[in-house]
Design a protein around this nucleic acid. Structure first.
Lengths: 214, 214
DNA sequence: CTATGTGAACAGCTTCACAGCG
DNA sequence: CGCTGTGAAGCTGTTCACATAG
């Protein structure tokens, strides 16, 4: 593929929201859904929903709406999550261990396949919880990435180590990084980065509250 | 305050990034920084940085750039994080406990002041780690919110409970919710919600990788 | 009659380019 | 000179409104 020019980035982000909501409707055995219904629960206009979906193809049925299972399949295909993909995690600290225990990844097409840490005390240990995994040393990363064809990695190390670890991930063959460290990663143009900074979201809430009623 | 009309939302989001970066520069004892330097490390144009900051006031010094400590003060003021503000957490599961242990909040002006859970086995326990807090029953929330003047809460409960707990938070007086549950919260117009869905960020990376090289 | 898909109009955001200040 | 602040231009994304299909 490679025709993703022209598609607004916000539309791609909303696509994930649509999928999540569609899966919720599927769990409740809804057969079809209209752009209006889907938009309403997500706080979007019906036109927005239709336009977004139309960027990716003609999925709807005039007079009917969108068939839920069909649209789920199509959207998963577009996002590349129609087949389970393996992901690695670097950093077995508090956040890392919470991520290992998080069952939401599996449900959405991602399998945590390997965990790495720098700390020699942690290396060789098994993680606890239901999803038990051995913690590997960073030096093992290139071999494991190749062996399991892993393309995406989650970075959950302290800010001070993040840039260096990110470089090691890229060198090991990782092409997409989900970054939880509160620093901007400098990577080449062939690597994608998505960053989550927990404090920043609180700041945004703080700003919104201050803008309305001090 | 209330003049935040006219300011693009993306500019507000970047303001947090600027602050984070400015604090990093302050730690390295930089006195001043230009819009070009700041933009470069964040992957933005110099014009973007200047325009964004100018939405909020005239902070720069022509020929010099921005004085780092001064700009930090001003931006904190704008975001409402110049004074420590108390935040509560609902949900002492894996993610919740990782958030309690996370030291990044304090550094950025937020103090985790109270933890709540529904599970009677957890209620009354102390959380472990350095930041020990008692876990309260949800029924205590209104009193504690009032006592500590808490306005923002972090929601880290399972998806199935999220909407109901959110309503209890709002009823208790919470005006801003940082939502980690993968469901869209339906709240009144006087409540702000920021959502973080870990799986969605992985999906976006998956899409980007599939769009460039299958 | 219901609901999609879509060009056209509109709104919002970003970039440009330069006047003006230290 | 170097660098900010800012109108104006340019571009991207959203909403409107309607032709079209079931």
């Amino acid at each position: 593929m490679g025709k993703s020019e022209n598609i607004p980035l916000p539309a791609v982000r909303r696509l994930s929201l649509y999928l999540r909501q569609l899966e919720a409707y599927a769990d409740e055995n809804h057969r079809t859904i209209s752009s209006r219904q889907l938009g309403e629960v997500l706080g979007l206009s019906d036109a927005q929903v239709r336009k977004d979906l139309a960027y990716f193809g003609q999925f709807g049925h005039p007079g009917i709406g969108y068939r839920v299972p069909e649209l789920i399949q199509r959207v998963r295909r577009i996002l590349g999550t129609d087949k389970l993909s393996r992901v690695l995690l670097v950093g077995a600290g508090n956040l890392g261990r919470a991520l290992i225990a998080f069952r939401g990844f599996q449900k959405r097409g991602f399998e945590l396949a390997a965990v790495f840490d720098k700390d020699p005390d942690k290396v060789g240990q098994m993680t606890d919880g239901p999803n038990r995994l051995k913690i590997w040393d960073l030096s093992e990363m290139p071999a494991i990435v190749r062996k399991h064809s892993i393309r995406v990695g989650i970075l959950a190390v302290p800010a001070s180590a993040a840039q260096q670890v990110a470089e090691e991930m890229v060198a090991a063959g990782i092409r997409g990084i989900l970054n939880f460290a509160p620093v901007p990663l400098q990577v080449g143009p062939d690597v994608s980065v998505a960053s989550v900074d927990l404090a920043i979201h609180l700041e945004q809430l703080s700003f919104e509250l201050n803008s309305v009623a001090p």
